[in-house]
Nucleic acid binder design. Structure first.
Lengths: 239, 239
DNA sequence: CTGCCGCCATATCATATGTTAGGCGACGAA
DNA sequence: TTCGTCGCCTAACATATGATATGGCGGCAG
């Protein structure tokens, strides 16, 4: 159907909906927002009254330490809700910014709350996405705390490709990857120079190509092995 | 009141409850479980049908990488709900274990769901704790990714003391701290030897004493400065 | 066209942190 | 008691990773 409500589209991806649910979702007003590269959508300290649904492109949640060093704590692709926490927490504790050009839908808190109260199954789905994000965050803690640089980087690339595939945004083992090497250094907690070193190693092992904003995993099994990757933490549901 | 339901007690801490809420909370059956040091309560891969409320002692959520290295991704003190995620995620992705001797209450999923459906305000409170845990996890990603060892350790100690104080479990700037140096190495992603080095430095700066399972922060302002600590991410509400 | 800037790449050198090894006191089990 | 284990501490050495510097290339603004 033409120009369907993207919120409705997103919910339909995981489960079939009742008529009442479909109707309710269709009625939720969305405000579309186009973001330029680096443009912030939320800043730490903000009090927001609406949530975000990513429609296109990639956003990143990040925090900055006292020395000004930035850490990306989560990446968000089309279909993700990067700040559902704002529904229940007063102040944002992180920035949320576009990585490259992106488009998002802004959804009023009140409308989402109404939706959740009237339709427990839709509320449960929102719960679930929050909990999966938290699970990813825990895996990132493991990744940053215990894995050395090459494993760490490979793990990040595995996660990105797999999530893109699940979202239907990959073409085989190839997908858009707008994160620059500086961005990857903010994801992995490594210096820019070391990011470059590690990527060269992954290339020399014929595991990946990465250029021009495009990631191509040449040897998925190999990358999974190097990256100590196993997908359970993403809690992907087959359907 | 004697032997009150600890679930009720916990909810009363943050807000005054309606009579109906109080009654509903009192009726929820709890199963008390005593845990010995290191005893696991949940294992990655488990399918659980109940949630945990920590009554006494300290638990830790942890994950193990392919090389067998363990990373603690969260610590839990009395009043925390370490695995509310099990309400909506099928399989646990982490282990949850007692750090030292501990006591928990096990609460059946069905009862919690009933409670949440019937009492949206109680559901909101549960939401909130999940979201605060996620916020802490993001801060840990920042801590592990960007801060160097002494700052990282100081930050962890600040968080522990402050959370203990908020939970009413501290005595001034002193609190129980059952994490061993090995445990701290699993929290900070540092080697055991380096944990020891860094603790010595913090002691030499007269910022802390830490011995016999007891943490004493001698200079809170100093530790906060060294640890690049600011408490916003804990989303503490005054009342 | 031209100059500037972002992104990527590489080399060299510096250092924070890991690794291995050893020792000491406290405590619980036999 | 004695023994084994655990938690803590320290030293010497190894290395993964950071810091600094420099250059190339391509795109974009003027």
């Amino acid at each position: 159907m033409l120009s369907a409500n993207p919120l409705l589209t997103q919910f339909q991806k995981t489960r079939s909906l009742s008529q009442a649910e479909t109707a309710a979702l269709s009625k939720v007003p969305l405000r579309r927002v186009a973001l330029r590269p680096e443009e912030p959508m939320v800043r730490a300290g903000d009090h927001t009254t609406s949530c975000i649904l990513v429609l296109d492109g990639m956003l990143a949640t990040s925090k900055v330490d006292g020395a000004g060093r930035r850490q990306i704590t989560a990446i968000h692709i089309a279909g993700d809700f990067p700040d559902l926490m704002s529904l229940h927490l007063d102040l944002a504790d992180s920035d949320i910014r576009a990585v490259a050009k992106a488009e998002v839908a802004s959804i009023n808190h009140d409308h989402l709350r109404r939706l959740a109260l009237d339709h427990p199954n839709l509320a449960a789905k929102l719960w679930r996405t929050v909990l999966v994000d938290a699970a990813i965050s825990r895996e990132w803690v493991l990744n940053l705390g215990q894995r050395e640089s090459m494993t760490r980087m490979a793990h990040v690339l595995c996660e990105i490709l797999l999530r893109m595939q699940v979202a239907g945004l990959a073409n085989g083992n190839t997908c858009r990857m707008p994160l620059t090497q500086v961005n990857l250094s903010e994801v992995t907690g490594m210096s820019l120079v070391h990011v470059n070193r590690v990527l060269q190693q992954l290339r020399r092992k014929d595991l990946i190509t990465l250029a021009k904003g495009q990631l191509d995993v040449l040897n998925w099994a190999g990358l999974v092995k190097v990256g100590d990757f196993s997908a359970e933490y993403l809690h992907i549901v087959k359907h």
